[in-house]
Write a protein that binds this DNA or RNA. Structure first.
Length: 184
DNA sequence: CAGTGGATGCTCT
DNA sequence: GAGCATCCACTGT
């Protein structure tokens, strides 16, 4: 299995993060779905350069970048910046393993499959907010080998042809099955 | 099941 | 003023 390098290619980092366990204040789980966003990528917040909002993306790797989505949700990213770049990996789904009861309280549902499925739900389950920006990410290595599938990113309108979404195809905690670009 | 639309706030044009 | 890396309730099969 590849070593996890958060300071190299963010697409490789997004792939290699599958299976790692993320914890915030003792609450979290196994990362089962990610997407990569790089500076040379029109869909990335960092594409138009550094702003107040996106500053954490240009900071040191291995830290959080958190942003508000559609005025409602907090989405959690891990900064994966090669030197001088702005890149991050969006966390799209966790398999909850730590602090299940606290997640259920925060989400108001019991079904573990839905606790942290989808980036907005994941943020809610972790009680993520802007205060997380720049904080060091607590990651623990995989306990078993997992398959990783690559496919199209979800919910974006630019650069929709890049297969920079990664997920464990055997996990029931993934938000949506991986779909690939039509071949022609 | 699938499809539609509202909530809501911040960034950029 | 538009658009957005979303989710949920609601509708109709």
């Amino acid at each position: 299995m590849s070593e996890l390098d958060l300071a190299g290619d963010p697409v490789a980092a997004a792939r290699d993060l599958i299976g790692w366990t993320l914890a915030i204040d003792g609450v979290g789980g196994v990362i089962v779905e990610t997407e990569a966003y790089r500076e040379d990528d029109p869909a990335s917040h960092s594409h138009r350069g550094r702003t107040v909002r996106t500053a954490p993306m240009f900071g040191p790797p291995g830290r959080f970048y958190v942003y508000r989505s559609y005025g409602i949700h907090w989405c959690v990213n891990i900064v994966c910046s090669p030197p001088g770049r702005g890149a991050a990996v969006l966390l799209r789904a966790l398999e909850p393993t730590l602090g299940l009861e606290r997640m259920r309280e925060r989400r108001g549902i019991a079904d573990s499959h839905r606790l942290a499925r989808g980036p907005g739900n994941l943020g809610a389950a972790l009680a993520a907010g802007p205060e997380l920006n720049g904080a060091v990410v607590d990651l623990r290595p995989p306990q078993r080998r997992r398959r990783v599938a690559a496919g199209l990113r979800i919910g974006i309108t630019k650069a929709i042809d890049r297969e920079w979404r990664f997920a464990d195809p055997d996990s029931p905690f993934v938000s949506r099955p991986i779909s690939s670009r039509p071949r022609g």
